[in-house]
Amino acid sequence: MTNEAEGGANRRDFLHVAAATMGGVGAVVAAWPFIDQMNPAKDTLALASVEVDISNIAPGEAVVVKWRGKPVFVRHRTEAEIEQARAVPIADLVDKQTDADRVQEGHADWLVVMGVCTHLGCVPLGTRSGEERGDFGGWFCPCHGSHYDTAGRIRKGPAPKNLEVPVYSFVNDNTVKIG
């Protein structure tokens, strides 16, 4: 394009570069709404936390709550179960966490864990009365035989990690807010 140079219109002219750059930047910015629409919508986010009434859960019992599409176990532990969990030497554990790490201070009788086995994502048994609780009195995952103790820690079986503790807080003595 020798003609162009003679005509004084250089391809690298500032104007041409500015026009092309603005177009490019505009296109990139315009792409954002089309990507962001795939993120959770407001109605989904509004359900991102749930409040659970725990006043009706007697010691030794537990409930399952659906939170963000997955089960959460809320367990009211007995004194004996807390003792049992505290007595375990830390060296015996696969995923080394103390019981105190897994509950909130002043609410040691409440254990809140995700009901998702850390092995391959099955829902462990042991929450509803009458279900098998495994060798350590916590939960038992029937898929591949993982046993969890009364602090939700993995003790036996293929699962690599303790049951995950979600973010939660006590709104008052009778209400737990998960998420």
Binding site: G7, G8, A9, L15, H16
Partner: peptide, 13 residues
């Protein structure tokens, strides 16, 4: 506006 000026310069010859 920038495109217009760019176009005018380009089209001059």
């Amino acid at each position: 506006a920038v495109l217009f000026l760019s176009m005018k310069r380009l089209w001059k010859p």
